[in-house]
Simulated assay, not measured.
Amino acid sequence: MSLTADTTFAPTALCDFVAAEAALIDEGRFDEWLALFAEDGRYWVPLLGARQADPLAHNSIACEDRLLLQLRIERLKNPRAHSQHPPSHCQHVLQCSRIEHIDAAAGTAALRTPFIYIEMRGEQQVLLTGVCHHALVRGAGGLLIRQKRIDLLQPERALAAIQLFI
């Protein structure tokens, strides 16, 4: 299959997917965001950042499969969730995504996107920077996230509690 025959893997479609995924988080549309993950999808924030090759060989800030993501989303939606009084809000500022790999025949693509992430809860603000790596796969309805890996710029520093999703 060529890129021209499958617009799912056109560079603009891939980059638009990453931007739309971040917008769902910023808008608090977490159920729709979760629907973008493949059944075997994983959200991973390594404790060692780019130096960490394996989520099981070392602790991570977050390493969550779909079930854990669903539980986290349910907690965020619960009106009794203490961590959401006042509620958290966030904003992603993304650079242009760089495509690292496309294999339309295999139905896979990988993108690298530098970002700034701001999360606000009341008067408290968390500011994080880093690079987001998306491993995407072709699903029945379009692109799905097999892995979203967040390499923070300074992961070894003390971090405030992150309530939402980078």
Rank of each mutant, 00 (worst) to 15 (best):
R66I: 07
I61Q: 08
L67D: 03
R66Y: 05
D54E: 10
A5W: 02
L76F: 10
A35K: 06
A35Y: 10
R112I: 07
Y43K: 04
E64P: 13
T113Q: 09
A104N: 03
P86I: 15
C63V: 13
Q124R: 13
H58K: 05
A23C: 03
M120R: 15
E74F: 12
Y43I: 12
L14Q: 01
E39V: 14
E64N: 12
A104P: 02
D26P: 12
A50Y: 01
R42L: 13
A106V: 04
P114K: 01
I73T: 05
P11S: 07
H85T: 13
I102C: 02
I102V: 14
A53T: 13
R98A: 14
A81C: 13
D6N: 13
I102Q: 01
S88G: 08
A158L: 13
R146G: 07
G28N: 08
L144M: 14
R29S: 09
V137D: 01
G141F: 14
A109V: 00
R112A: 11
A160S: 12
A57Y: 04
Q163M: 02
Q52E: 03
Q91W: 11
T4G: 04
S97V: 07
R72N: 06
P46M: 11
Q95G: 12
R66N: 05
L56P: 01
R149V: 15
F30L: 14
H82N: 11
R112D: 05
D65A: 15
L24P: 00
S97A: 15
Q91E: 03
Y117V: 00
R29K: 14
C90A: 06
H134S: 04
A38M: 05
A57R: 09
H101M: 10
L14F: 10
R80P: 00
G107Q: 00
V131Y: 03
D54W: 01
R80E: 10
I150N: 04
L56M: 11
H92R: 15
L69Y: 05
P46N: 05
A105N: 07
D54R: 05
E119I: 10
I162K: 14
E156M: 08
Q154F: 07
L36S: 04
L153F: 07
L68Y: 08
L3E: 06
I73S: 03
I150V: 15
N78G: 01
S2Q: 14
E21W: 13
H82Q: 13
V18M: 03
N78D: 15
A35N: 11
D54H: 02
L127I: 09
N59I: 13
G107M: 01
A10F: 04
G130L: 02
A53N: 11
N78Y: 12
A140M: 08
T12L: 08
C132S: 14
K148Y: 09
A13E: 13
T7Y: 06
V131H: 01
L159C: 09
F165A: 02
P79Y: 10
T12M: 08
L71Q: 08
T7D: 03
P86Y: 11
L34S: 09
T12P: 04
R146D: 07
